[in-house]
C-alpha cells in the first residue's frame, strides 16, 4: 500500500517541475491545521489536566505547589467521590449490558428484515440526532410523579404509582434507560455494518449443511462480528463513563447523590467548589477507566485497529 503510494508520488514528481523540497512539504502543510486544532485543544487539555492533578491549584497555576499524588489519595479516601465511582460503575455496567442486548437484537433483526428494512434502519438512528438535554427532558416527562405516562398507565391498571425520580434505585434505572436510548442507535448501526460484511455464502453453505439456527448465530455470526462488538462496547462504555448531558437535567445527581456519576462529581468539584486540581484529577481517573475498559475489549474481542 505504502510502496504503491511512493511509486505514484515519485512518478508524479518526475513529471512535475516543482522542486522536491516544496513537494515534500505538501503533506505536512495539509495536515498542519488539523494537528494544530487537535493537539492545541485536546492535547493541551490532557497534558494540562495531568499536570494540574499533581499540583494544588486554587486560582492560578503560577503559584500552585507540587503535591504529587495527594489529590488522588484525597479522592480515594473521600466518600463522596467513592460514591460517584460506585454509581458510575453501576451506571456503565447497566448501560453496557442493556445497550448491547438491545443493539445486538436490533441489528440482527434489521439484517433479517428485507421489506421496510430501510425505514427501520433510518428510524433506529433518530435518537442519535437528539441532544442529551432533550432526551433527559422527554424521559423526565415520561417518568415524572404527577404527569408521567408510565405512572398514568400504572394507575389505569389499578397499580400503585411510583415516584420514580425520588427513589434512588429507580432514578438510577431511569438514567440508564435514557442513556441507552441516547447511545444505543450508534452501537446498533456499528453492529449491523459488521453483520452485513459477513459473507452471505457462509450463511447459505451453513444452511445447506443443515446447521442449527442457534449454531449459525453462535458459531458463525457472533465470532465474525466480535471485532464490531468490541467497537460498539467501547462506544457504549465511553459514552456512558462520561455521560453528563443526560443526567444533569434528568436528576441533577439526585435524589441525594444516588445518580451522581463521576462526570457530574467532577463538574461540581471544579465549578461549584472551584477546586480545579481535584476536577482534573477526576478527569485523569475517568480517562484511566476509559483506556482500561477499551484495552480489555480490544483484547477479548480481537479488535484489530488497522487503517
Amino acid at each position: 500500500m505504502a510502496s504503491t503510494q511512493v511509486e505514484t508520488k515519485t512518478s508524479l514528481t518526475q513529471k512535475l517541475k516543482n522542486s522536491s523540497l516544496k513537494k515534500k512539504s505538501i503533506p505536512y502543510l495539509l495536515v498542519f491545521p488539523a494537528i494544530l486544532f487537535v493537539v492545541g485543544v485536546l492535547g493541551y487539555a490532557i497534558v494540562a489536566g495531568v499536570l494540574m492533578s499533581l499540583y494544588d491549584m486554587q486560582l492560578s497555576f503560577a503559584d500552585a505547589p507540587f503535591i504529587g499524588l495527594q489529590n488522588y489519595i484525597y479522592l480515594f479516601t473521600d466518600s463522596t467521590f467513592l460514591n460517584s465511582l460506585f454509581v458510575s460503575l453501576i451506571f456503565v455496567f447497566g448501560s453496557v449490558v442493556l445497550g448491547l442486548t438491545l443493539s445486538l437484537s436490533f441489528a440482527l433483526s434489521l439484517y433479517k428484515c428485507k421489506r421496510s428494512g430501510n425505514f427501520f434502519k433510518a428510524l433506529s438512528l433518530v435518537p442519535y440526532l437528539i441532544s442529551g438535554i432533550a432526551t433527559a427532558i422527554m424521559f423526565r416527562f415520561l417518568f415524572s410523579g404527577d404527569v408521567g405516562l408510565i405512572n398514568m398507565i400504572l394507575s389505569t391498571f389499578g397499580l400503585d404509582t411510583v415516584n420514580f425520580l425520588a427513589n434512588p434505585w429507580w432514578a438510577l434505572l431511569i438514567c440508564i434507560l435514557a442513556n441507552v436510548w441516547f447511545v444505543c442507535p450508534f452501537a446498533t448501526l456499528i453492529l449491523l455494518s459488521g453483520i452485513q460484511s459477513v459473507d452471505q455464502e457462509l450463511f447459505d453453505s451453513a444452511k445447506i449443511d443443515g446447521a442449527h439456527k442457534h449454531h449459525i448465530l453462535l458459531k458463525i455470526i457472533l465470532p465474525l462480528i466480535a471485532p464490531m462488538m468490541g467497537i460498539s462496547l467501547i462506544w457504549l462504555s465511553f459514552a456512558s463513563f462520561n455521560m453528563f448531558d443526560v443526567i444533569l437535567p434528568l436528576t441533577n445527581g439526585g435524589p441525594g447523590r444516588a445518580t451522581e456519576v463521576m462526570a457530574l462529581y467532577m463538574y461540581n468539584v471544579a465549578f461549584d467548589e472551584l477546586q480545579y486540581s481535584l476536577g482534573s484529577t477526576v478527569m485523569v481517573i475517568i480517562l484511566f477507566f476509559n483506556v482500561l475498559t477499551s484495552l480489555i475489549y480490544l483484547k477479548v474481542f480481537n479488535v484489530n485497529y488497522s487503517e
Partner: peptide, 23 residues
C-alpha cells in the same frame, strides 16, 4: 501524526472541561 489525530477521537468532551476551562 495519524495517532495524534485518531486517539483524541475517543476522548469524550465532558471529561476534559476542567483543564480546557482554565486554559
Amino acid at each position: 501524526l495519524l495517532i495524534f489525530i485518531l486517539v483524541p477521537r475517543i476522548i469524550p468532551r465532558a471529561s476534559i472541561i476542567v483543564p480546557l476551562f482554565t486554559g
